[in-house]
């Protein structure tokens, strides 16, 4: 793809505080998401990764401050309008496994279909494009109950692609996958951001992989949320501080965590 295409801001926060009714998770957050970027959200368990994602996707209201989606304040958008900006891939697998691949991907077109949900020619085109992009056309008639975890992840991603939003959020897309498939998904996400100019933001525990493959990292740690490129993050001392120092340490020369 053309690297010189103009980079535009899709999402930008302004003095954002996140948390729940009686609990502040982090304050004064400044995050910016641009087109074509692959961004990993990392942090230890319970640090507030999912609170941040929930707030950025409009699922949870900000405690203070604003989130702008292409100049529009997120709190002023209803769910129908929001569905044109943000699509999600969740860890929750409680969906009907009776659905076949094509049907599941087709549901991604719901924001664009009529009141009965009938697919137009264009909808079908977009569905096929998404299936092709993820190379799962030959699986299109298989039921979800017959797919492996890795294939299912691709199908869910294809659904998000079919929704055709500038922004895709994924919640820990590589859990349950072996190392090969973890790398496969990371590479796939990277390829998608390059081919489609969509921005993809995902929460992950795979810090080593994220440092190698992502354009930006959002680090959530002890009430602080910092956005940096991997290089900047490695130069800063932030990764060394991430975990207790008795078991694991960050080695800047190899750009990875090492067991002590």
């Amino acid at each position: 793809m053309n690297i010189e295409t103009e980079i535009k801001s899709i999402l930008k926060t302004h003095q954002l505080d996140i948390g729940y009714a009686n609990k502040l998770i982090a304050k004064n957050i400044s995050v910016e998401i641009n087109t074509g970027n692959l961004i990993a959200v990392i942090g230890v368990n319970g640090s507030g990764k999912s609170t941040l994602l929930k707030t950025l996707t409009g699922d949870l209201s900000p405690k203070k401050g604003e989130i702008y989606l292409q100049q529009k304040n997120i709190t002023e958008l209803n769910t129908a309008q929001l569905s044109h900006f943000i699509s999600v891939v969740l860890t929750d697998t409680q969906f009907s496994h009776n659905l076949n691949v094509e049907e599941l991907v087709a549901l991604g077109r719901q924001p664009y279909t009529n009141w009965l949900g009938q697919l137009s020619k264009n909808d079908k085109l977009e569905i096929n494009k998404a299936l092709q992009l993820l190379e799962i056309e030959e699986k299109s008639l298989s039921k979800c109950s017959d797919l492996s975890d890795g294939q299912l992840q691709k199908v869910l991603l294809a659904r998000a692609i079919a929704q055709n939003t500038p922004l895709i959020f994924l919640d820990e897309p590589t859990t349950h996958l072996d190392l090969y498939h973890k790398i496969f998904v990371f590479k796939l996400l990277k390829k998608l951001t390059r081919q489609t100019e969509k921005a993809i933001v995902f929460a992950t525990h795979e810090i080593n992989l994220a440092l190698q493959l992502c354009d930006q990292i959002i680090l959530v740690n002890k009430g602080e949320i910092i956005q940096k490129t991997p290089e900047e993050l490695i130069k800063s001392n932030l990764l060394q501080e991430l975990f207790p120092k008795d078991l694991v340490a960050f080695d800047a020369s190899s750009k990875s965590f090492r067991v002590l």
């Binding site: 996707t57 699922d59 569905s83 999600v88 409680q94 009776n98 949900g117 929704q163």
Partner: peptide, 21 residues
């Protein structure tokens, strides 16, 4: 309800992300 019932096949969170009320 037909359209929203279809999105509910994915679960409530997905249904909301698809714009369902």
């Amino acid at each position: 309800c037909i359209k929203n019932l279809n999105s509910l096949l994915l679960g409530e969170k997905y249904a909301v992300s698809l714009g369902a009320n």
